[in-house]
Nucleic acid binder design. Structure first.
Lengths: 208, 208
DNA sequence: CAATAGTTGGACTATATAGTCCATGTCTCC
DNA sequence: GGAGACATGGACTATATAGTCCAACTATTG
């Protein structure tokens, strides 16, 4: 966990932890759909069925809540990606990973974008701490992609000279850029296209 | 111009047009730096040295102002890109284009991201009209990239079968994703890396 | 030079929203 | 089982912000 999750020094009963989790869950969902700025504390209260004092009991204020949401969403995304990428060691596996993300986004016609990416866009310029956490999360996600590429390398699919980390950065950017274009067009096609191009580039190196 | 710029039917004197432009200019700058949601009308008033009634004389409300900002920023970006890309017909030219964008972003250590991209992220899920405009702007920008690739094709640098439009989409996504990663990391390196990867892929097709 | 339409200044209002407070209820641990 | 800490409910406040109103001013046009 990044920030104080088990309230600095305070005891925290199972009941309290549950309430806290309910708040963060509701806030994360709302902020994904409505955006961070337009999600009010009253929205969060209504959605989680919790009173204001409880919210302020568990969080110092909205900023702290936003940070908790970043932590929570980050954990969820990284967990999902770890499951999806942790053992992939083929180009086909990467394509399946791509398909899953694209199809998932297609359910909303691209709306809302990447859970992490849209948080990053909304928060990065306003909260240095949250930005830093998001930056680490992206790096971690990228590390999972690097792992896949390294396994490809180990299996001889990619040459030893292939710049693994840079390829992972490029793939990550293709993903995030694709999300943004899809979100704006309300059509996942550009997202599929951009990831395809990145994967095609990676695949083209295997000939070398 | 997309939305009503010369107020539907109303006369508009040179003086009025100037005031209107001052408002949009100030709003665009503030919204780029502070974000759309956290920029208040009072901020815009203070920055442009204009009174509230003038703002409401020229715009129906904040939404209308945001749309005018989208139009204005869009025009500025497209103009800049038309100048930068309009006559490029070499890979080297594309690299110079990349350098200009990266260096420009480096001046702010990546902060604020792409003028169009960050607007898209903030506005797409809240204002269908603005989203549509932004989508068209991205398409237009991408069209400029397609133009470059087509010239490369005409000059025999790229093969006839090269999927121009998809490559342009991929390049655009690499750019936008790079912006987002740079904004989050406050370091332009990932932006440079991701565009490089897209350009390397395009270049690699010239061998085919 | 009127008459009309566009332009401006700034006080005023309504409301949404973050944040406070305190009384009461419920655990935990000795 | 009792003391003290944790947890909860909800009313209350302060304030920021979008939006209104109107009187006065300035340009344009017949």
């Amino acid at each position: 966990m990044t920030t104080a999750d088990s309230q600095n020094g305070k005891r925290l009963t199972a009941r309290g932890a549950k309430t806290r989790a309910r708040i963060v869950d509701a806030a994360a969902d709302l902020m994904y759909v409505k955006g961070v700025g337009t999600t009010t504390l009253d929205d969060v209260l209504a959605a989680s069925g919790v009173s204001k004092s409880q919210l302020y009991h568990h969080f110092e204020g909205k900023d702290a809540l936003v940070r908790a949401v970043v932590d929570h969403v980050g954990e969820r995304v990284i967990e999902r990606e770890r499951r999806a990428l942790g053992r992939v060691s083929t180009i086909r596996g990467l394509r399946r990973w791509r398909d899953a993300l694209v199809q998932n986004s297609a359910l909303q016609h691209g709306a809302y974008g990447c859970a992490l990416g849209s948080l990053a866009g909304e928060v990065s310029d306003h909260d240095a701490l949250a930005r830093h956490t998001l930056s680490r999360l992206f790096t971690e996600w990228q590390g999972l992609l690097s792992g896949v590429l390294r396994r490809l390398q180990d299996r001889g699919v990619l040459p030893a000279e292939a710049p693994i980390d840079q390829l992972a950065t490029g793939l990550m950017a293709a993903l995030q850029g694709g999300y943004l274009l899809a979100q704006t067009a309300r059509d996942v096609t550009p997202m599929a296209t951009s990831i395809d191009m990145a994967l095609a580039h990676i695949e083209s190196l295997s000939a070398g």
